[in-house]
Design a protein around this nucleic acid. Structure first.
Lengths: 136, 136
DNA sequence: CACCTTTAGGACCTGTTTTGTCTTTTATAG
DNA sequence: CTATAAAAGACAAAACAGGTCCTAAAGGTG
């Protein structure tokens, strides 16, 4: 249960790679993909989406590439994970109203909410900058 | 991310239903399935597995059916969830050794461990008995 | 302008997992 | 022996994961 998909894993690795670049330095998909051991075309898809969300900035043509859309210290792990995996929702019931018939009389609901709250809080408290810091 | 599957949802509903029966009273799959709005054959599969694990006791033949394998107060939500969904593991890396090349130098690892710990702790602290209590 | 580089977008594909169904077998009570 | 229920296993549709591939568009460069 609760497994991050490969896409999520790849996304995080890619973002960490970008965070480790010199400020203003552009990184190519091919370069990132190789360094992080991710299939290039797959990573491209992930980053294309991130560009739309503003998590990264992309530039085409010679000398183009990707860089973070914001300082790494202002990008949380939660943002990255939710951008690829969708919202953190342990149970469908927590989504739209009426999604769950048992909504009112269900004691499990509040438990899922607690789980959701805890996980979100943890992921929210971690920035890409921290993750990118040297591990000695 | 982190969504419980239908199977997990069904399993919990089924266990709660059993917990609400008078002690020693047997419940049929057909009866549980109808009450919880779960496809009978699907629920049967889930409970067959639970019987093996001792989460429920099953009896064949006339007057047979299912009952909890232990008092509801000694069955945690964690047990039920892990029985259907497998272990709570936010990232594959947390599994077998060597599953992750980036094992040593990866700052994300400890974050997933925290997530895992929190979720397990929450689910562990909730028993089926609590979930089965009347909601007024 | 022509050409090269690099991302953007979309169609497509394959394998696995989810969410079941159906049929046959086995155990048990009466 | 017969009716009842669960056990077991084969099967299958649909959704999702995890990619690939091809064409287009944008931006430099001579």
């Amino acid at each position: 249960m609760m497994e991050l998909t490969r896409k999520g894993e790849y996304a995080i690795r890619g973002m960490i790679y970008l965070a480790r670049q010199a400020p203003g330095k552009m990184a190519l998909i091919s370069e990132i993909a190789e360094a992080t051991e991710v299939p290039p075309t797959f990573l491209a898809k992930i980053f294309q989406n991130f560009a739309k969300l503003g998590l990264v900035n992309s530039y085409r043509g010679t000398g183009g590439g990707f860089m973070l859309g914001r300082p790494a210290s202002r990008i949380t792990l939660r943002e990255v994970v939710e951008a690829v995996e969708g919202p953190i929702i342990p149970n469908r019931c927590l989504m739209g109203s009426g999604a769950c018939d048992f909504d009112k009389q269900c004691n499990v609901h509040p438990v899922w909410r607690r789980v959701q709250g805890q996980v979100v809080q943890i992921l929210e408290s971690v920035t890409i900058e921290e993750l990118a810091r040297d591990t000695k």
